[in-house]
Write a protein that binds this DNA or RNA. Structure first.
Lengths: 143, 143
DNA sequence: TGTCAATTTTGTAACGAGTACAAAGGTAAT
DNA sequence: ATTACCTTTGTACTCGTTACAAAATTGACA
């Protein structure tokens, strides 16, 4: 999904039972048009110029609401910052251990996401991720 | 592995090219006999009584050294704290989203750990984890 | 349109995991 | 015993995140 209109995003939020305030719509719109697993700071820094009164707390509040409603996934693959992904479909992630960028891996076998049965547990979701070195860091320029 | 002797742990560290100081041996011994994915605080709290001069910084230093040498795995499955696992063999993890406990899942298909080939990337390791509710939280007593 | 209640946003202060750093302590070789 | 090197320790600090209460906004209804 690239460059959704604000009214599209508005409808999208309603679909998750989220009341679409201006701030919430802006955050979700950013997530939908930047599927780069941004951190809270990425989002705040990007929206701040066109929304000068935006508070970082609001970004946190908003993302936590989105999480509760199942509208975004939180990635814990980066131990420093939480990252957010508006793509809640099945896909794996690949983190470069040099620059910490997180890439999508869409063409993994769907079987990877099948949930194992374990006596007594209710298993709800699978998280598949890989660690390695990305092309840019491989060719020398760090970071 | 349960209750390794300190001299066994001493040898074990040498196998990873780690100089076995008293503190390092104690931390690794704890990890080997408590495969419960402890946090830094878990380890510090457990060792502190019998090692009163132990500093929490030493626990951090030690675990970072173990990581560099490949003697432990760091789990980022819990967004609050880093967790450490002395079992570096292939196995998946299962986190209860109510109590945050992390369980091992040993009988997963080995195929899950096969590394995908992606043009330009050097993929080095797979991390497989599942989120759900554990038996204890299911039966009512939270957390 | 004005009023009131409920929700949302905002800024500040606080919390807590993890790190930097330098002093102190321990180890090993000569 | 002296010296050099490595390890441990405690304090101070950084920074991501949350708590909290005041301010702003929204929506309902008269």
């Amino acid at each position: 999904m690239e460059q959704p209109t604000l009214s599209h995003t508005h409808q999208y939020l309603l679909g998750f039972d989220i009341k679409p305030s201006v701030q919430r719509t802006a955050v979700m719109n950013y997530l939908l048009s930047h599927m780069t697993h941004p951190t809270v700071d990425d989002i705040y820094t990007a929206l701040s110029p066109t929304m000068p009164t935006l508070s970082k707390t609001t970004v946190y509040n908003t993302l936590n609401l989105f999480l509760e409603k199942g509208a975004v996934r939180m990635l814990t693959i980066d131990e420093r910052n939480a990252r957010y992904d508006a793509d809640i479909s099945h896909h794996a992630h690949l983190r470069c251990r040099m620059c910490d960028r997180v890439y999508d891996l869409r063409d993994v076998q769907p079987a990877l996401f099948s949930l194992p049965r374990v006596e007594g547990f209710d298993i709800e979701a699978a998280e598949i991720s890989y660690v390695g070195i990305c092309p840019e860091c491989k060719t020398g320029k760090k970071g």
